[in-house]
Simulated scan of single mutants.
Amino acid sequence: MIVKKRIKPLKLFKFEALFRRLDLDHPKRQIASETYAKSLAGYRGERSLDFPLSFLPEQKYHVLHDLRLYDGSHYFQIDCLLLSSNLIIIIEVKNITGTLIFDSTFNQLIRINDNKDERAFSSPIIQVNRHVEQLQKWLKLQKFPAMPIEPLVIIGNDKSVIKSTEKGKSQTLSQFVLPYYVLPDKIKELEVRHTTYLLTKESQHTLSKQLQIQHHPLKFNILQHFQISESDLIKGIQCTNCKFYSMHRTFGTWACDRCMTTSKKAHMQALRDYYLLIGTTINNRQMNDFLQICSPHITKHLLNSLCSITIGTNKGRKYVLSFAFE
């Protein structure tokens, strides 16, 4: 059963907010777009696990997606963890198109695309094996018994060709690296190798719960990461129809000066963008500036109706923003 769902990473929402608020010709937009494309491909690759994992016995496995744990020295990210009473399987997903050559001599993954261009990536086998060591360290730190941990690298694109640089090594490679659609068969193979019950059902639930409690989401300040100034962002309220930042408040609603579209909640997207790009708290002055609202009374009314939690008093009051992202 899925005990920690895979949700769209907050990082992707931050990129999308940035693209709404950054000029097309901004010098940092290109590199941000390239980084976003890689992150989106990774997320889509992880989603390729959904179908093969649906074949697992629901009561036997606890499935935890997107875990970030601390082993006492370093944080480490696991794309997917499968926990049973017999073993733990950790999965690293790669969604890379083309011919994928695993070079065990230099510990690289080499991708050759349709244009015959070559590009090297760090070895996902090295990465997932390191995660095994870190997870073993984490289990000991949390005072759980040692468990057999099996690492897998799943290729999320069924059109990718998987190869090895060493002759006769492809059989060894296939023990770790496989296309997503053969995952159920691989798990059955691992079950045959690990038949000793090490956890009771109660202990399995306890470990599963602790993994969720100890998850530390990565904090990602997108403006700081790309060295983009807040002053570079486009301010105002974006029209829900024509997408220009041309809405103003009139008679309790928002109206677009260009296409005359009206909306009661157009300011919500602007506040979500502020939350994603700048911070989780906002005061009247900041809202007036970011949403380009001329009336402090309108700002105060909107914030009081939206935010139930405040910090400070009088002129030092800040409103705590809260949004759900799925």
Rank of each mutant, 00 (worst) to 15 (best):
M1Q: 08
K11S: 11
E16M: 11
F19H: 04
L24A: 12
H26L: 05
P27Y: 03
R29Q: 13
A32D: 07
L40P: 06
G42E: 14
R44Y: 14
R44F: 13
L67I: 13
D71H: 01
G72Y: 04
G72M: 09
Y75D: 06
I78T: 00
L82S: 00
L100I: 02
Q127C: 04
V128S: 03
E133V: 03
W138P: 02
L141A: 13
L141E: 09
L141N: 14
A146V: 09
L152M: 00
K163W: 03
S164E: 10
K169E: 10
S174E: 12
P179D: 02
Y181E: 11
V182E: 12
E189P: 00
E189M: 06
V192Y: 13
Y197T: 14
T200E: 08
Q204D: 07
Q210W: 07
Q210H: 10
I213T: 14
L223W: 04
D232W: 05
R249M: 06
T250Y: 15
G252F: 07
A266G: 08
A270Q: 08
R285M: 00
D289Q: 12
S295Y: 09
I298G: 00
K300P: 02
H301K: 15
H301N: 12
N304P: 08
C307M: 07
S308W: 12
G312M: 09
T313K: 15
K318V: 09
F323L: 11
F323V: 08
